[in-house]
């Protein structure tokens, strides 16, 4: 028997080709402005991004989607897909999550042939839905019977490690430093997941002004190695 968490873990691998290596979600703006330039300043940014943006968008959406899947309420999942997309007011970040979601859905459909995934893809093709990796990931987690909390934790882990990899290339930082940050962030991820589990629905989509601004400003950043 294949360990189900291990199967979900495959999706967290930074080699899993969703295109996350192309998106910094505003980090590159901070790097260009010299605000993020070393391990400490990057960790500070990553903490704010995790605790003040990701939990309220992807994290909370993942939990609500998991709960909707348990209740077989797919309309709720499609509603979350729309909410996640339209609450992202920065175009590049919004396009990025759509593109990554689309790719994750394509690959996981090949791997698991989950009917919900197929339906999600069909809806995207027919322009009824947008696509988002948090939901694509959650659908697989639920399908594999990985519990809700672990699914959210793994999803956040995959997002954070991808951003660390990107920071290692862009700042740049040493590979070992990158691994140190991922190691240090394990406790942050647990805190973030606990928070997601307790968040009220009213808190969906809270955005920190500075983070969002940096995501908008990225469109006008001169030299860029990331698409967002």
């Amino acid at each position: 028997m294949i360990d189900r968490s291990l199967s979900l873990f495959q999706l967290c691998d930074s080699n899993f080709p969703t295109g996350s290596f192309s998106h910094s979600f505003g980090l590159e703006t901070y790097i260009q402005e010299g605000i993020v330039h070393d391990k400490e300043s990057f960790s500070r940014w990553l903490k704010v991004y995790l605790h003040e943006q990701l939990v309220y968008s992807d994290g909370l959406a993942s939990r609500l989607a998991y709960e909707a899947l348990v209740e077989d309420d797919l309309d709720k999942v499609w509603e979350l897909d729309r909410l996640l997309t339209v609450q992202n007011l920065a175009r590049e970040s919004r396009d990025g999550t759509q593109r990554m979601g689309d790719r994750m859905l394509n690959i996981t459909e090949e791997l698991y042939k989950i009917p919900v995934t197929s339906q999600y893809r069909r809806r995207i093709k027919e322009k009824q839905s947008f696509g988002h990796s948090a939901l694509a990931f959650t659908i697989v987690g639920y399908h594999l019977h990985v519990d809700k909390e672990t699914t959210i934790l793994y999803y956040l882990y995959s997002t954070i490690t991808a951003l660390v990899q990107n920071a290692v290339r862009a700042i740049p930082l040493g590979q070992t430093t990158g691994q140190q940050i991922i190691h240090e962030f394990q406790k942050e991820l647990v805190v973030a997941t606990d928070k997601v589990m307790q968040l009220k629905k009213i808190n969906f989509g809270i955005v920190s002004p500075g983070l969002e601004l940096s995501q908008m400003k990225h469109e006008r950043v001169n030299i860029r190695i990331f698409m967002s």
Binding site: T85, V86, R91, E92, R94, L213, Q215, M216, K217, E219
Partner: peptide, 8 residues
């Protein structure tokens, strides 16, 4: 500090 961006 300002930013602007198009909606979908």
């Amino acid at each position: 500090k300002a930013g602007l961006s198009e909606l979908h």
